[in-house]
């Protein structure tokens, strides 16, 4: 039996619980059993990216304690996984015991699409979507985890959907965490271009693997009353034809 422990990062937990729900129903369809440690909080990435490593290390220790007994941890965010896998060990350069624990848990923490494709070798999730989709490569997922083909493989198997690549699919959307609030002009110029590329692609939905980016893109779309659907890949893959069970 396949079992996964869910790490649902703060943005999804608090702002987009429907993404977590989609992940649960997708896993149920695929016969993956789940547990969700109630004590999980934040992975510490916001503090780490802002330079506050001592604070990030506290969050990291909490994550490690919460998850180290789990065999396989799956998270619907590339940048949180990259934080755990790549930056946790850096945080404990002077604490070898913690470092070892960090490395161990990092090896068992997977991003959703890499879990499905690389670990479980699932390509067809039995999903259905009626429409044209384009895909946004989130920076950390693509560049630090090397995950770019996996989501496309999964998308290509979605029945009813047409896939189009947008121009600059792997150009940063301008989110960058605190960057987006500290340097709003630059961040806005970046998301403006991203949205232009999405619109130019002709897709009616943009799919991504990280709600940070998607929150940014969606915020710009709704502010400008632009009619493109924003979907986390879990939502796409959980989709079924109307009426199907």
């Amino acid at each position: 039996m396949t079992h996964a422990t869910l790490f649902i990062q703060c943005i999804v937990d608090g702002m987009y619980p429907e993404v977590g729900e989609a992940m649960v129903s997708l896993f149920q369809r695929l016969g993956i059993t789940m547990d969700y440690p109630e004590n999980q909080t934040c992975c510490g990435q916001p503090s780490f990216n802002a330079g506050y490593r001592k604070e990030a290390a506290k969050a990291a220790k909490h994550y490690i304690e919460t998850f180290e007994d789990s065999e396989t941890i799956v998270c619907p965010s590339g940048s949180c996984v990259s934080m755990v896998r790549h930056h946790y060990p850096e945080l404990f350069e002077n604490e070898p015991a913690w470092k070892a624990r960090a490395i161990a848990v990092g090896k068992r923490t997977f991003e959703l699409t890499e879990y499905l494709v690389d670990v479980l070798h699932i390509e067809n999730t039995g999903a259905y979507y009626d429409g044209t989709i384009t895909y946004h490569d989130s920076c950390h997922l693509k560049r630090y985890l090397g995950v770019a083909a996996q989501p496309r493989t999964l998308i290509s198997q979605v029945r009813g959907a047409t896939f189009v690549e947008m121009k600059g699919c792997d150009t940063c959307c301008g989110f960058g965490g605190a960057f987006s609030t500290k340097y709003p002009d630059i961040s806005t110029a970046m998301v403006r271009e991203k949205v232009k590329n999405i619109l130019d692609s002709g897709a009616d939905a943009v799919v991504g693997c990280d709600m940070g980016c998607l929150m940014n893109i969606k915020g710009y779309l709704t502010r400008n009353t632009l009619n493109v659907r924003v979907m986390h890949i879990a939502q796409l893959l959980a989709g079924k034809k109307a009426g199907a069970v």
């Binding site: 702002m15 977590g20 609030t181 806005t188 929150m215 969606k218």
Partner: peptide, 20 residues
Amino acid sequence: GWTRSRDIQPLSQTPFRKRF
């Protein structure tokens, strides 16, 4: 800085942790 050019999703009253 964010809301000058973008909307933001409010926090859900029922977070995922309560739904799981």
